[in-house]
Design a protein around this nucleic acid. Structure first.
Lengths: 187, 187
DNA sequence: GTCTATACGAAGATAGAC
DNA sequence: GTCTATCTTCGTATAGAC
C-alpha cells in the first residue's frame, strides 16, 4: 500500500532534482516542499536518499513515456513536435529554473545503482521514441538515429536555455529538428 | 603573476566539475588531485569556491574556443566532425566518467554570478561556432540554427553515453548530424 | 604563500519513545 | 507512522602563526 506521503515525496523530489540537482536536493527541502512528515522518511524509504532519488527519476521516466504513448500512431513530424513541446513547457512553466531530473542525476552521481537507474530511464525513452518514429514513417535505422538525436538535443537545449534564461537556444534547436524530420519523413 | 598552484587548481577543478558536478567538487578533492597547498586556497581565490569554479568553467570555455579556432576556414562538414570528435574524446579518454563542466554547473547552481558565467561560456561557443559554420558554407540563418543544434546535441549525447557507459547513443547522434550538415551544405 | 586550528552549518542516517 | 534527539561526516570559510 503506497501512502500519500510517500508518493508526494517522490513527486517533490523529482521536481527538486530538476531544479537544484542531486546534491542540491536534500530531505529537508523535500519535506518543506511537500509537507510530508519528517519522522517517516526512513520508514517509507529504508534505502535512504538513493532510494528516494531512484524512485523520483523512475517517476520522471514513466511520465515522459506515458506522454509519448498518447501520440502513438501519429506521424514522425507530430511526435517530434510533441516531444519538443514537452521540454519547452518545462522551461516556460518553471521560468527557466527547472530541467531534467535524470540528466541532473547522471552528471552528479558516481557509478552505482543510481547511475544505472538513470541509464535505464534514458534507454527506455530512446527505445520507445524510436518505435513511435518508425511507426510514424521513418525507416528503422533513421528512427534509431533520430530518436537519439531528439532526446540528446532536447536535453542539451534545455540546459542552454536554462543557462541563458532565454528560449532562443531551445527554439533554434527545435526549428532545425522539425525541419529535419520533415525531410527524413520524405515530406 | 599567476602562480603555478593557482592555474593547477583551476585545471583540476575543471576536470572534477566535469566528473563529479558542482557540489561534488570540493576544495579537498581539488587539493588532493593537484597537490596544491591547502593553506593558500583563499590567498589565490579570495572569492572562495564560486571564484574557483567560475575560473574553471571559463578555462573550459576558452579551451573549446581555442580548439574551434584551429579549424577556422574549413568546411561546415569538417568543423562539425571536429566538434563532435572533441566531445567524443572526452568520453573515451575518461572512460565515461567525465562530461561537460559548464553543463554540470548550470544544472546545479542557483541563479547568480556563477550561472551567468556558465551562460556566457555557452553563448560564446554558440556565436563562435555559428561564425565558423557560416564561413564554412552555411547561410546565416542555418548556421545559427545548426550551431545551437550541434552544441545542444553534443552536450546531451555526452550525458546519454555517460549514463549508458556506451558510445552507442553518442555515435547515433553524431552520424545523424554529420549526414545532416552535408545536406545543409548542399553536398 | 603556506601552515594549523577551528568555527559553523548542513547533510544523511540511526535510536528509541509514542 | 510519526516524533525528537543525536551521531557522524563533510563542506566552506576564517584567524592567526610562521
Amino acid at each position: 500500500m503506497a501512502s500519500r506521503a510517500r508518493s508526494t515525496m517522490i513527486e517533490g523530489a523529482a521536481l527538486l532534482l530538476a531544479k537544484h540537482g542531486l546534491q542540491g536536493t536534500s530531505f529537508s527541502e523535500v519535506l518543506e516542499l511537500t509537507g510530508a512528515p519528517r519522522g517517516s522518511v526512513y520508514h517509507h524509504f529504508p534505502g535512504g536518499k538513493d532510494q528516494l532519488v531512484g524512485e523520483a527519476i523512475e517517476f520522471t521516466g514513466a511520465n515522459v513515456n506515458d506522454a509519448l504513448q498518447q501520440r502513438a500512431g501519429e506521424s514522425a513530424e507530430t511526435i517530434t513536435a510533441y516531444f519538443l513541446d514537452l521540454w519547452r513547457s518545462v522551461l516556460t512553466r518553471s521560468e527557466f529554473s527547472a530541467g531534467c531530473a535524470v540528466l541532473a542525476v547522471t552528471v552528479a552521481s558516481e557509478p552505482g545503482d543510481l547511475a544505472d537507474r538513470a541509464a535505464g530511464v534514458f534507454r527506455r525513452w530512446r527505445t520507445r521514441l524510436a518505435e513511435l518514429l518508425e511507426q510514424g514513417g521513418l525507416d528503422t535505422t533513421t528512427a534509431a538515429r533520430f530518436s537519439a538525436l531528439l532526446i540528446a538535443s532536447s536535453e542539451g537545449a534545455v540546459v542552454l536555455s536554462r543557462a541563458e534564461r532565454s528560449l532562443e537556444p531551445f527554439d533554434l534547436v527545435a526549428d532545425q529538428l522539425r525541419d529535419q524530420v520533415r525531410l527524413l519523413a520524405g515530406g
